[in-house]
């Protein structure tokens, strides 16, 4: 059963026909070629496919497009543009921090990890380590031992406080 759906992804409206049983993950990657969102298990066990729905991190492998119609969907492709600070192509402070700290090794968990971290920083501008650990506890990373990821989130939090919307 195909249905015409309209999704708002990264502030852009996408209208398309889609089989109703395709997950948001499949639609993002295969229909819209937003391949920044990754998949590692498709069963909700690894966090690689995390995207934001109305600002909350959710697993795109376990949600249907029809369930998120009318909601704000943000993927890694929209993260750089998500805050009005300077030019559009400027990376989000989290992205800069991930690169600088070496928080991405193979990089495969990074998109999901970054979306989770973005939601955290939107809620808590200066989270402590325990809160960061708790927030990313659904995102498996096999490379870093999470150490550099936690440091990157801390760095981004610090640089974030300098931004106008947080002062």
């Amino acid at each position: 059963m195909k249905q015409l759906l309209t999704l708002k992804i990264n502030d852009e409206k996408h209208e398309f026909w889609v089989s109703i049983h395709k997950t948001l993950l499949e639609v993002l990657r295969e229909d819209l070629h937003l391949t920044g969102t990754k998949h590692g298990c498709e069963l909700g066990e690894c966090g690689a496919c995390t995207v934001l729905i109305n600002g909350e991190p959710i697993l795109s492998c376990l949600i249907l497009p029809i369930e998120v119609q009318g909601k704000e969907i943000m993927t890694i492709e929209g993260l750089a543009h998500s805050e009005k600070h300077g030019t559009d192509c400027k990376p989000h402070p989290l992205q800069t921090a991930f690169a600088q700290q070496g928080a991405s090794q193979c990089g495969y968990c990074s998109p999901g990890m970054l979306m989770t971290a973005k939601a955290l920083l939107d809620k808590y501008s200066n989270p402590d380590r325990e809160r960061i650990r708790e927030a990313i506890s659904g995102n498996i990373c096999r490379c870093t031992g999470y150490a550099k990821i936690i440091e990157a989130v801390e760095q981004a939090a610090k640089s974030n406080t300098k931004l106008p919307q947080h002062t």
Binding site: R29, Q95, G102
Partner: peptide, 18 residues
Amino acid sequence: TQVGGLAKAKGETVYADD
């Protein structure tokens, strides 16, 4: 900064399944 690090953080790195 790791070569390719920012591309990974931006989701621009193209893996085989991409």
